[in-house]
Amino acid sequence: MTMIRLFFLVLLPLALLVPKAFAQSAPMLKPVVTVAGDLVTLGDLIAGAGTKAEIAVFRAPDLGQTGIVPADDIIAVAAAHGLVDVETSGIGKVAVKHASRIVTADEMLPLLSQALADGAALEGPDALAIEIDPAFANIHVPVEADGAIRFADAFWTENQGRFDATLIVRRIDGTDERRQLTGKAVETAAMITAARALERGTVLTSNDLRIERKPKAAVRDGQIDDAMLVVGMEVRRALREGQAIRTGDLSEPVLVKSGATVSVVLKTGGLTLTAIGQAMSDGKNGAAIQVMNTQSKRVLQAVVTGPDQVLVQAPRTIVSAQK
């Protein structure tokens, strides 16, 4: 009798645990839900929905958006489909998010620029400055659309400064997801600008220059688009960093200063002689100046050929024919 009583006392606590175990497997409302498709099922909203899990009960929010569903509405629709005794654990509302892939503006711009340039027969993707309308800066597509992106039907309207194009994203099943987008686009032109603040008299090197693209409508007469035309030139006035460099801002640099010691090259016939001279005036490349030979003190007419370098051509002697 004592043994039976002890056995019963041991079993009693175990029996008290059984209802709790069953309670853990009861349907339970989820506080936060993420869905990939356009429909929300009972299984999405309720853990342990069993055979009712695949029943669609609500439409999902727009791609990438989160919607709020009152818990009472979920309980009511579940009961209507025969799913009862759902444990809410005090949850008053459920957040439902529609998962998506986000195609960002940074991802789109290189391919979009190329597509618009090709469509307009422009020189390259940098030929247009593009700004995607805010509504399309981040485009949501289904998570199944995980393939590469491309653009079709890309058109630029020059007089309006607008574009429209179709974004195409390949889905897992091989089909395409398509989205229209619009924005602003203006043609640009390359121009040479100052890479740093430049003082008057600076002789320009490639490190002083930067190539930028500006709206073509803002390009003024005399602006330069080829750095090779600028390197070696002298700045006639101070320029601020980022300022466009125009032809009027430049002049040939003074290669020979008055009073400077110069290397004199004298060419006569097939001979080339060199001497040291003193410049009598300033001279730019190709300028004719007077140079004094420091040994003979003779003043010669010379042409500036480089920094502190001049060339003297000996006059030809013309012999007339004897009759």
Rank of each mutant, 00 (worst) to 15 (best):
M3A: 13
F8I: 10
L11K: 03
L14W: 09
V18D: 03
A26N: 08
L42V: 02
A47D: 14
G48C: 05
K52W: 01
K52G: 00
V57I: 08
Q65L: 06
T66G: 06
V69I: 15
D72A: 15
L83F: 08
V84Y: 08
D85M: 10
T88N: 06
K97G: 08
A99F: 04
S100C: 15
M108A: 05
P110Q: 10
E123I: 06
I132W: 00
A137S: 13
I139M: 07
D146Y: 02
F163N: 01
R179D: 00
V186W: 10
E187Y: 01
T193L: 09
E199A: 14
E199K: 13
R200G: 15
V203M: 03
L209D: 13
K214W: 13
P215S: 10
K216V: 08
A217L: 14
G222L: 05
Q243V: 11
L250F: 04
S251H: 11
S251A: 15
S258I: 11
T261Y: 09
V262A: 06
V265R: 14
L273F: 14
L273G: 08
A275K: 07
K284M: 07
I289C: 10
V291W: 05
N293M: 12
Q309A: 15
V310T: 06
V312D: 05
P315E: 12
V319M: 09
